[in-house]
């Protein structure tokens, strides 16, 4: 394996956890701010207004 391909492999493996973290974060924000499920809406109501997620 050449130096170039080793560096390539390392940089690719570094991107995976970054993408995973960003997607997990977006999922949490979606659940807290956007989910239309009524149970989520009721629990999240005051927080959604306070953070100014579009609500109702």
């Amino acid at each position: 394996m050449t130096t170039h391909t080793i560096a390539q492999a390392q940089s690719d493996s570094g991107l995976l956890p970054i993408a995973f973290a960003a997607l997990t974060g977006l999922f949490l924000v979606f659940a807290a701010g956007f989910s239309h499920a009524s149970a989520m809406h009721d629990v999240a109501h005051d927080q959604r207004h306070a953070i100014a997620f579009p609500c109702h």
């Binding site: 960003a22 974060g25 977006l26 999922f27 949490l28 924000v29 659940a31 807290a32 701010g33 953070i51």
Partner: peptide, 10 residues
Amino acid sequence: IAYTGFALVL
């Protein structure tokens, strides 16, 4: 939940 989500993206 919301701020942990923001933190993960940040």
